[in-house]
Amino acid sequence: MEEGESNFGREEDEAETELLRDRFRLFAVSIAEAEAKRNEMEISQPVMECIADLAFKFSEQLAKDLELFAHHAGRKSANMEDVILSAHRNENLATSLRSFCNDLKGKEPQSERKRKKALKKEKTTPSAFHIS
């Protein structure tokens, strides 16, 4: 009886994951396509699917990290610091996230002019996230 119940729970969980994965994939594909276009490149279907799957796995991993970080700090809610912490191995990435974070903080009162500026900057420095 109990086993049956937990099995049912798992199936339900999988169905939900599948649904979210599909929705996630739509976003991922449109981002990847836009990025390829900006590089004046075509991108083949399997590559996009693969990248979407990778990104989904990455998000799941991120969720685990955020939970652990938040709990370690004695909180039950993850905040921006936790997200930045999850990228701490890559300094460039962490810096970029921090500036995005400051933009978000500064965004509430005023408009999104800053954010656009930050995005433009990102465009001009294409691949700045390598660990040197």
């Binding site: 990104a55 990455f58 955020l66 996230l97 995005f100 294409p126």
Partner: peptide, 29 residues
């Protein structure tokens, strides 16, 4: 007690995943 995340943390996570995808495409390009 379930973990939660605040709105800005979610936006920042979205940005992180977006950067992950754009990096993948740019490097492959």
């Amino acid at each position: 007690r379930p973990t939660t995340a605040n709105a800005n943390a979610l936006k920042l996570s979205c940005e992180l995943v977006r950067v992950f995808i754009t990096e993948a495409v740019q490097r492959a390009a």
